[in-house]
Design a binder for these strands. Sequence first.
DNA 1: TATTGTTATACTCTATAACTATA
DNA 2: TATAGTTATAGAGTATAACAATA
Lengths: 181, 181
Amino acid sequence: MTAEEATHIEADLGWALGIVFRGYLKAAGKAVADLPGGPRGFQVLTAAATSGCGSQVSLAQQLGVDRTVMTYLLDDLVQAGLVERKADPADRRARHIVVTRAGQELLAQLRERLLAAEAYVLSALAPAERETFRTLVQQLASEAAIASPGFSLCSEGVAADVAVDVAADVAADVAAGGAGG
Amino acid sequence: MTAEEATHIEADLGWALGIVFRGYLKAAGKAVADLPGGPRGFQVLTAAATSGCGSQVSLAQQLGVDRTVMTYLLDDLVQAGLVERKADPADRRARHIVVTRAGQELLAQLRERLLAAEAYVLSALAPAERETFRTLVQQLASEAAIASPGFSLCSEGVAADVAVDVAADVAADVAAGGAGG
DNA sequence: TATTGTTATACTCTATAACTATA
DNA sequence: TATAGTTATAGAGTATAACAATA
């Protein structure tokens, strides 16, 4: 490596990732400003709604955060009436996180707003490149998540049926005009 | 959007970006553990070494952080003898940030360690995909940085000549065996 | 003994305002 | 009046340890 090859800041992956991530947080924060926990709260809602095993540790592992963080996030979401901590009959230590109907409705609405925010963040890329970028980030994140200790996605499970049941009702509402931008 | 299309957490761009970014911070943090400020300190060093206009605000804008953060980062780097705050004869308010010889040496060494950390973060992708990902993130970050108020890269300028002068000496040292992993 | 959930603590990063010295 | 740099403060986000209840 010679002096002429002195790396500029744009070549630093950490710089680029940081800029993009902070830009995303800013855009997504506005999109879900009325949701407790902001983008993190949305991720909890999404994971709780689509994941089969809804225990707090399992959600925390999926989201890549500490289980102590999950307690705070859930406290706020419970207080807002968006999720509930149900007792797990199979393990009295665990709490089963269930998204309420209000939570399902809000989730469906915020999903569209968040998609718009994502589109804004990616707007510097050509349409084909956006999909490529999404695929690659997703691929990196999935591998990293799998590599983290104790990770399991639990896409099938006991709670999935209940969640889908509620989601069916909600989907009708949203399609009827709930999708406010 | 129907219930069957309920978005899983992997489809959330914020989730993926967060996982990847935190994974990078972890890997990069180990790589530059002996540098004040960690990966952020490395970015300051890189920007100061390759950017022409080395004022603190200009560096802060390039890095996408507040100018108050730059003060703390530079305090530690100055104390470690890696950069110096020189008076700017053209503007007595401004400080010209110059990387010392020790800073240049450390920068050259850490650059290789950081490249290894970056390679680790991207290891889930095929070689061709890694370059694609780098290009796309860089493209997104550059556009976002340019869009931010007051941004200017200043790749050419007064200090550039001095920096390259020092860098030439350092490059010889590193090539001779300074690149410790 | 290990795990779930909670609480408390501390450390980092970030955001804001106020202050000085210069322009 | 505006800008460069500093300082102080507060708010998020994260990491760690400790604890009670349960496996």
